[in-house]
């Protein structure tokens, strides 16, 4: 537990370092309202998907299909819009489809006892494939501006983009669910010791299924955000985003083995990755540096606890 707290402190420290370096090196434009708005837009989808995915990983499972659900949701929006549906009916439909996608993952994992890694690699291909079947390689872009505006304008009077408002609301909901409810305690218990959780009367299968459904639904919401932000519905929207989200969650201090991590750490991780990307873009640094930094941060985040542990035992061994 102490290791975890230390990692979150380290993340906040890193965030401050990034913010200060950014502020100094860009002559104050990094923390300006306009730039923070773009930063917020840039991390919107990752922040959204990272929320349910944190719970999934804390419960000891993984969902690699989230970016494909995002793509499927985007493709469906375009397809249904072309078919003449109104957006008021499309959006709920898409979220339901996302939840169904999540339920398929969850049922395969809980009812058949299949490893979620294999299942969601399968559905990663399946859902992305369905997105391609639905929309092919065409793009639908003629959405009314009253909707696409949500993706490109801030909340009136502030610099907060709408997707971030949505992410904050959901973060509070997921935060309460994970950290202040019996449901959340059960999620930690399942991740720490599934067998033990089952014997203590926790409905392991039902909770896991719920988590996968939530991941699917929120990924579909992220698909809506993505579609309106670029005002373009395409089947290949968000390809490869799953790795970025998993990286952000793990960087936030969540253990891949489950049972450990906090939503606060994950949000710090998302901000750190987004902030770094934004800073590097502002400084015209090539994006490959960012790719390397992402990978290195991820490695450090898993190596740090292991190294501190080793030092700890060394110190104990040599009194």
């Amino acid at each position: 537990m102490r290791n975890l707290l230390r990692w979150e402190t380290a993340l906040v420290f890193l965030l401050i370092v990034v913010a200060l370096t950014g502020q100094v090196s860009t002559d104050g434009s990094f923390l300006s309202g306009g730039n923070l708005f773009y930063l917020g837009l840039d991390i919107g989808e990752i922040a959204l998907i990272a929320l349910p995915l944190t719970l999934v990983i804390v419960a000891g499972e993984i969902d690699l299909s989230v970016a494909s659900v995002l793509g499927l949701s985007s493709a469906l929006i375009g397809w249904l819009w072309n078919a003449g549906w109104s957006l008021e009916t499309i959006l709920p439909t898409v979220i339901v489809v996302g939840a169904v996608c999540g339920a398929v993952n969850g049922l395969l994992v809980t009812r058949l006892g299949l490893p979620s890694l294999a299942v969601t690699i399968g559905t990663l291909a399946l859902y992305r494939g369905l997105a391609l079947v639905v929309l092919g390689d065409t793009a639908v872009a003629d959405f009314p501006s009253s909707y696409t505006e949500f993706g490109t304008t801030p909340l009136p009077g502030t610099n907060i983009p709408y997707p971030i408002v949505l992410a904050i609301v959901l973060a509070i909901l997921f935060g309460v669910a994970l950290h202040a409810s019996s449901f959340g305690r059960s999620v930690y218990a399942i991740g720490a010791n599934e067998e033990g959780a089952r014997f203590s009367g926790i409905r392991v299968k039902r909770i896991k299924l719920t988590l996968f459904v939530l991941a699917g639904a929120v990924a579909a919401i992220a698909g809506i955000v993505y579609t309106f932000r670029f005002s373009s519905a395409r089947a290949d929207n968000g390809v490869g985003l799953e790795l970025a989200v998993v990286a952000a969650v793990l960087l936030g201090g969540v253990s891949i083995f489950g049972g450990k991590g906090s939503l606060f750490g994950v949000l710090a991780g998302v901000l750190l990755l987004g902030g770094l990307r934004n800073l590097l873009i502002l400084q015209d640094t090539s994006t490959e540096v960012l790719t390397i930094v992402t990978g290195l941060l991820l490695l450090v985040s898993v190596l740090a606890p292991s190294i501190t542990r080793r030092f700890g035992t060394l110190r104990k061994a040599t009194p």
């Binding site: 399968g122 559905t123 990663l124 291909a125 399946l126 859902y127 992305r128 494939g129 369905l130 391609l132 079947v133 092919g136 390689d137 089947a235």
Partner: peptide, 8 residues
């Protein structure tokens, strides 16, 4: 377009 769905 069907290829990926079938592989999955």
């Amino acid at each position: 377009f069907w290829q990926q769905a079938i592989a999955g």
